[in-house]
């Protein structure tokens, strides 16, 4: 069985899927990613599907599952590089890719991860300020 490599770039794990994955390879990637997120403490996962000429319901479900697993492990997932024909087919197939964030390319994906993290921190700061305001008479 082939295995999809996972690269670490700064605070981000980058997965570029270059093979026609069997279902087993897809499940293995899910597990490998979860382990790498915990081992590295990375806060972003970018999955590049530029080389994928189809996304069927199995791969679609894998992408949704990876996004949910990452979320629980405090990391944002962005899927990048979807081909137009793949997008058209996905919609007709009836897959909505719930909970998945997408960007056009890796660069924009990295910006999206950074922006989401920044928003999260702002939200946290906001909560603190509220707490202080309530505490001060």
């Amino acid at each position: 069985m082939e295995r999809v490599p996972i690269l670490k770039i700064g605070d981000i794990l980058l997965v570029s899927i270059q093979v026609d994955m069997s279902d087993q390879t897809a499940i293995q990637l899910q597990e490998d990613l979860a382990e790498r997120i915990v081992a590295t403490g990375c806060h972003g996962v970018i999955i590049d599907i530029t080389a994928l000429d189809i996304v069927d319901s199995f791969v679609g479900r894998m992408l949704s599952t990876i996004a949910s697993i990452s979320k629980v492990l405090d990391a944002e997932t962005v899927v990048v590089g979807m081909r137009p024909a793949v997008a058209i087919t996905l919609v007709e197939l009836g897959l909505s890719l719930n909970g998945i964030r997408t960007a056009l390319n890796v660069e924009r994906g990295m910006e999206l991860v950074a922006a989401t993290r920044a928003d999260d921190w702002d939200a946290l700061d906001g909560d603190d300020e509220d707490a202080e305001t309530t505490a001060t008479p």
């Binding site: 189809i54 996304v55 069927d56 024909a85 793949v86 087919t89 197939l93």
Partner: peptide
């Protein structure tokens, strides 16, 4: 697009 649709259907 038609290739993509057919291959996706075949995969399912």
């Amino acid at each position: 697009v038609d290739q993509t649709k057919l291959v996706t259907a075949a995969s399912e």
